[in-house]
Design a protein around this nucleic acid. Structure first.
Lengths: 195, 195, 195, 195
DNA sequence: TATGAATGAGCGTTCATTCAT
DNA sequence: GATGAATGAACGCTCATTCAT
């Protein structure tokens, strides 16, 4: 996937290490020194690129999320129907959780331990995701794929159902195949929205 | 020696203060001293009743949750149909979040920062709640209120939808009436489950 | 020895408990509460009889030592020759260590952790013991039992040799019979003092 | 980068400060912060070099003692007769106490307040010293300098007599010249061991 | 630019002491 | 007198952050 060589900037190394360590330990238990070691750089170097531990946390979180959103938009655009789009989102969501269960785990934690600016960003980010889903549902209604459901309620239900996969998955207790859990959930939701 | 009741034990005072402070600050930022001040007792007194900060957190969390579960079971038993039961749960859930948004906020956080025993308890607790909902849905299916939906998928969707109320509510951004958001969500879900 | 019954005053109970606990834990690690429990009284009661932990320590120490000195004088007076007196002292010393190894252990510790008054008392006490031995040696010289040795040097040597039993005995490593170790030491010392 | 020597490592600075403060206050009353101040470093720096207060105490103690033992062996080897060797030991002992009365003072205290490993090390250390003296006495017997005395008893007496200098010296009450007290003691002991 | 030795503010916890009963 | 619940000063230790090299 990479162009030339495996050249990674120090910044990238640190962000990746931060992901690993924050996810493993949580924000407070994670030590800046451990992140530096994980990244293979000196402790002081971390502060060359990030002004504080909290700043590093925020940056790591943002990068991870924005990457996810980019993937989401990129993939979803290829689907034609609203139903397919939502299905795609559900599977991407599942994949994302599985591959980044670390990030998923700290999403929850992140709400309490950062400043208000970050909280606002996070809230805005979640709204953005919700709006994206809402717009797909509204598109589906417009195209006649769905009934005249309350689009906000439906997107809340959809988002919530996605979210409910978090806990069991991140605790590693969901050893069944993804389609076995995602399909039935989608079925229930789609039934509620179908004409 | 005292007249009527109203008398609160020190333990109760501390638990209530812990709720307030942990919710406001999160586990790590909360200082034991602040909890003591909030409770109107000395710092040492906290340690007369709880062996450590973590222990206090766990106890506070358990008490709050168990109280909620008791309320839930008590109220739900009065409803006759599965639909009414789920509706009841949705509203109680909403009320609980509104009244205990403090507790709601830290539910998420709590997963990372306590020991494995607590994590297990929490996981078991969540399963218990899910099973309760699942059994209501299955009862609804048996009684012919619902179609033959996948009861697990449905309960995940329901739980998830309830959960999705968390974020906006705990961030204090939901200034509409509860029924305006709960009813549409229930409608979507029930449509998906109806015959 | 007791007059009426086994009536023990609270004060005595506390002093005995203090002996046990201070000896087991040392001054700093010993907790006043543990002493109270050991004595079978309430924590507050300790402060009815002793103004502080340090005060309790001092009192306990003084009582123990003075009791030892009384025994020493009482027994020694019965011996007729200086040699016999010193021998008696050596054995009593050994017995005392064995029976009160607890007290012996904290003698050392006690020098650092109390106030100057106590230190002076302790120093005076040790001098008193040394003088007692010195006077016996001088009596021996006067009576022609010993050569004209330097009585101070001799008493230092004698005291020191007694003291050197401390470490091995209090560490419980001396599993030989007392006479097997005391007699040779006395022999060396007496040879050095004999005509 | 620095010119000659004179340069002291932080570790050495801290060990020296520890010696001063532990000796002045005893293990428990000594505050880590005071040691840091005495060393002219920050409190955290102490923990860069020693994992805990107890660890610092043990290291300080070991260094001091091992230095003493090295000095002892180095000097004693130069003496030819057993008598001279013991005399040398006596004077070195006295010097050591005078120069390191701090260390001497806490030797006693140290027995109670450290863990079992340290206690074992201390006990082993004392045995080693005793064995060294015993071997010199046995050498003296073999060479015909001393009578067939019980070498263990004699070494106990010698060690004890040395030890008895502790108390008066460390309390600063011995304002006489060292030879005035050491020579008579040696005389008594040697008389007891001579042919 | 990169480093890691040095730092000290900050916090959890202990326990001697007090005092209302 | 006797009690033990309540207290808060005190201290060991951590770790984010700095800065001289």
């Amino acid at each position: 996937m990479e162009a030339k060589a495996a050249e990674k900037t120090k910044r990238e190394l640190i962000l990746e290490a931060a992901m690993v360590v924050f996810a493993r330990e949580g924000f407070y238990k994670a030590k800046v020194e451990d992140i530096a070691i994980e990244a293979g750089v000196g402790k002081g170097t971390v502060y060359e690129y990030f002004s504080s531990k909290a700043e590093l946390f925020k940056e790591m979180f943002k990068e991870g999320m924005e990457k996810f959103i980019r993937t989401l938009h990129g993939e979803v655009i290829q689907a034609s129907t609203a139903r397919e789009k939502l299905k795609k989102i559900a599977y991407l969501h599942y994949d994302f959780i599985m591959k980044n269960r670390d990030l998923a785990k700290i999403t929850m934690e992140s709400q309490n331990q950062c400043d208000d600016d970050f909280r606002k960003w996070l809230f805005g980010f979640q709204n953005q995701k919700m709006d994206f889903i809402k717009s797909i549902i509204e598109e589906g209604i417009a195209k006649g794929e769905f009934r005249q459901v309350d689009s906000r309620a439906a997107s809340l239900a959809f988002t919530g159902a996605m979210g409910s996969l978090f806990a069991p998955v991140t605790f590693g207790k969901l050893d069944i195949k993804p389609e076995e859990i995602i399909e039935p959930i989608l079925k229930v939701l789609f039934e509620g929205m179908s004409k």
